[in-house]
Simulated scan of single mutants.
Amino acid sequence: MRALAEPDLPVLTARHTGTGPAGVRVLPFDASHDRVLLGPHRHGNLELMFYAEGSGVDRLGDSAFAVEAGDVLLVTPGVVHDASGIAGARGWAIEFDAAALITVDSAAAGRAGTTGRLWWSNPLLTPFVLAGRGPRYAHLVVPVDRRDEWVARMREMEREHTERVDGWEEVLAALLHVTLIDLARFAAPYAAGLRHQGETLLAQVFELIDERYPEPLSTSDVAEAVSLTPTYLTTLVRQRTGRTVLDWITERRMAAARELLLTTDLSVEAVAGRVGFGDPTYFSRRFRALHGLSPGRWRTAAGV
Results as ranks from 00 to 15, higher is better:
Glu199Ile: 00
Gln197Thr: 09
Phe206Ile: 00
Val271Arg: 02
Gly193Trp: 05
Val222Ile: 14
Ala257Val: 03
Glu251Asp: 12
Gln204Trp: 10
Ile249Gln: 08
Ala225His: 13
Phe206Leu: 10
Leu201Ile: 07
Arg195Asn: 05
Gly273Ser: 15
Arg238Ile: 05
Ser218Asn: 02
Thr219Met: 08
Glu259Gln: 09
Ala203Pro: 00
Gln239Lys: 15
Val275Pro: 00
Ala257Lys: 02
Ser227Gln: 14
Tyr232Pro: 00
Pro216Phe: 06
Glu259Cys: 07
Pro230Gly: 10
Ala270Leu: 10
Ala272Val: 05
Ile249Thr: 04
Gly242Phe: 01
Glu259Ala: 14
Arg243Pro: 00
Arg274Glu: 15
Val245Asn: 03
Thr263Cys: 05
Asp247Ala: 01
Gln239Phe: 08
Val222Lys: 00
Tyr213Phe: 12
Thr229Cys: 08
Thr231Arg: 14
Gln204Asp: 13
Thr200Cys: 00
Tyr213Ile: 00
Leu236Cys: 05
Ala255Met: 04
Arg240Asp: 11
Met254Ala: 09
Tyr213Met: 01
Ala203Gln: 05
Arg240Thr: 09
Gln204Met: 07
Val245Ala: 01
Ala225Lys: 07
Ala203Lys: 04
Thr235Ser: 14
Phe206Pro: 00
Arg195Asp: 13
Thr235Ala: 15
Leu266Pro: 01
Pro230Arg: 14
Gly193Leu: 04
Thr241Trp: 08
Gly278Val: 08
Gly198Tyr: 09
Arg274Met: 12
Thr229Phe: 06
Leu228Met: 15
Glu224Phe: 01
Thr264Phe: 12
Ala256Arg: 02
Ser227Glu: 13
Gln197Leu: 12
Val222Met: 03
Leu202Trp: 05
Asp247Arg: 01
Ala203Ile: 00
Thr250Lys: 11
Thr231Gln: 15
Val237Gln: 06
Ala270Phe: 11
Leu194Ile: 06
Leu233Phe: 12
Ala203Asn: 10
Arg238Leu: 14
Gly242Pro: 06
Ile209Lys: 03
Gly242Ile: 05
Asp221Asn: 09
Gly193Arg: 15
Leu260Asn: 01
Asp247Pro: 03
Arg212Leu: 14
Thr234Ala: 15
Pro216Ser: 11
Gln239Glu: 15
Arg243Met: 09
Leu208Ser: 08
Gly276Trp: 06
Leu246Gly: 03
Ala255Phe: 06
Leu201Arg: 13
Gly278Gln: 12
Leu217Gln: 06
Gly278Thr: 13
Ala223Arg: 03
Ala256Ile: 01
Thr244Ser: 15
His196Asp: 14
Ala257Gly: 07
Leu262Asn: 14
Thr244His: 02
Ala270Thr: 15
Val226Leu: 10
Ala270Gly: 06
Ile249Gly: 01
Met254Trp: 01
Arg240Pro: 02
Leu262Glu: 14
